[in-house]
């Protein structure tokens, strides 16, 4: 579904990603872990098409298309979804209107008719029940005055509404207490199927207790330095990132 080859990217002349290789197939859950500043959010942003970042090398194929050639909205319409680490606020714009616009823009891209009010409400109700989210939140302006947990839940709700093929969750667990993490993880698990894939970006292992990954990758200094199964996450938790850092820094010095 997603094939990243030797991806290099940076911002304002600064190299951040130094050759990422990653292959994600439909139905899989991958986790990317790594210390702060290792480039996790940068990777997510580059995949979503944020223009501030400059891709200087490598390739990304998504569902048979050259992802890097597509505009951010085309990527979204092709089925790539990013749950933001810091969702933005849009004062005055009701969350429901925003989501309705998004749903219908994506339908338009695929040559489908927009959902009418009845159809949209039906879809909303179904996903609200699934995600355990309150109607009152959705009638408020987008993310304005939302608590950290509400913002993250809103991201996952949008994901449920838009039904992406690949969802990238950027530190969706950060700032959440354990109950909120469980709700968010449950939501993700409910939507996950054989047809779609999830890429979980996280600093801590605890989210992975609830969203169980098939593969875990460790990102350090803009490179995937170690890949394994969910046991790798537990090892990281136990030994901390320092053990990876030491391992890598030593190797690099030797090299």
């Amino acid at each position: 579904m997603l094939t990243i080859k030797n991806l290099q990217a940076g911002i304002e002349g600064k190299r951040i990603l130094n050759g990422i290789n990653l292959d994600i197939k439909a139905g899989e859950v991958h986790a990317i872990m790594g210390p702060n500043g290792s480039g996790k959010s940068t990777l997510a942003s580059v995949l979503a098409g944020r223009q501030d970042y400059e891709v200087t090398g490598g390739s990304v194929e998504f569902l048979g298309k050259d992802l890097l050639e597509l505009s951010p909205e085309e990527r979204a319409c092709e089925g790539l979804f990013l749950a933001f680490q810091y969702p933005v606020e849009i004062p005055g714009l009701s969350t429901t209107n925003f989501i309705k616009t998004a749903v219908n823009e994506i339908r338009k891209y695929h040559g489908e008719k927009p959902l009418d009010a009845v159809g949209f409400l039906r879809l909303m109700k179904e996903k609200m029940a699934l995600m355990n989210i309150d109607q009152s939140l959705l009638s408020r302006p987008l993310n304005e005055g939302f608590s950290g947990g509400e913002k993250k839940r809103n991201e996952i709700f949008q994901m449920a509404m838009l039904q992406p093929r690949l969802a990238i969750l950027d530190e969706t667990d950060s700032g959440l207490d354990i109950d909120a993490i469980r709700i968010v993880a449950n939501g993700v698990n409910k939507i996950h199927s054989k047809e779609n894939a999830v890429l979980v970006v996280t600093h801590y292992q605890r989210l992975l207790d609830y969203i169980v990954p098939d593969f875990v990758h460790v990102l350090y200094n803009g490179r995937i330095v170690k890949s394994g199964t969910k046991e790798l996450a537990l090892e990281l938790e136990e030994k901390g990132y320092d053990f990876i850092k030491n391992e890598i820094d030593v190797t690099e010095q030797v090299g």
């Binding site: 909205e73 979204a76 319409c77 979804f81 925003f98 998004a102």
Partner: peptide, 16 residues
Amino acid sequence: EDQIFYCNQRGIDTET
């Protein structure tokens, strides 16, 4: 730009 990008990421073009 972050607001525009947020919308773009949901499939909404910049004009909209």
